[in-house]
Amino acid sequence: MSGAVKVLLYHRTGDVGGIEAAYHRVSRELAGVPGMLGNELLRSRHDPASFVVISTWESTAAFDEWEQGTEHKNTTAPLRPYRDGELARPFGIYEVTARY
Rank of each mutant, 00 (worst) to 15 (best):
G3E: 14
A4F: 10
A4M: 14
V5K: 10
K6E: 11
K6D: 04
K6Q: 12
L9R: 14
L9K: 07
Y10G: 01
Y10S: 06
R12N: 03
T13L: 01
T13D: 03
D15V: 05
D15M: 05
G18D: 03
I19G: 03
I19D: 00
E20R: 14
Y23Q: 03
H24C: 03
V26Y: 07
V26K: 09
S27H: 08
R28V: 04
E29V: 01
G32H: 07
G32K: 06
G32L: 04
V33R: 11
P34F: 04
G35V: 05
G35N: 08
M36F: 02
M36N: 12
M36H: 03
L37M: 15
N39G: 12
N39P: 00
N39R: 12
E40K: 12
L41G: 08
L41W: 09
R43E: 05
H46N: 11
D47S: 08
S50V: 02
F51H: 08
V52M: 08
V52I: 15
V52P: 05
V53I: 14
V53G: 00
V53R: 03
I54D: 00
S55E: 05
T56Q: 14
T56P: 00
E58P: 01
S59P: 10
A62Y: 04
A62N: 10
F63S: 01
F63Y: 15
D64C: 05
D64P: 00
D64G: 02
Q68D: 09
E71H: 06
E71P: 02
E71V: 12
H72W: 12
H72D: 03
K73A: 14
N74A: 15
N74Q: 14
T76C: 04
A77I: 03
P78V: 09
L79I: 08
L79N: 03
R80F: 11
R80Y: 09
P81M: 08
P81V: 06
P81H: 04
R83V: 07
D84F: 02
G85D: 07
G85I: 02
E86R: 11
L87Y: 00
L87T: 00
R89K: 10
P90K: 06
P90F: 04
P90N: 13
P90A: 13
G92W: 03
Y94M: 13
E95T: 12
T97R: 15
T97V: 15
A98E: 14
R99E: 15
Y100N: 12
Y100I: 14
Y100E: 13
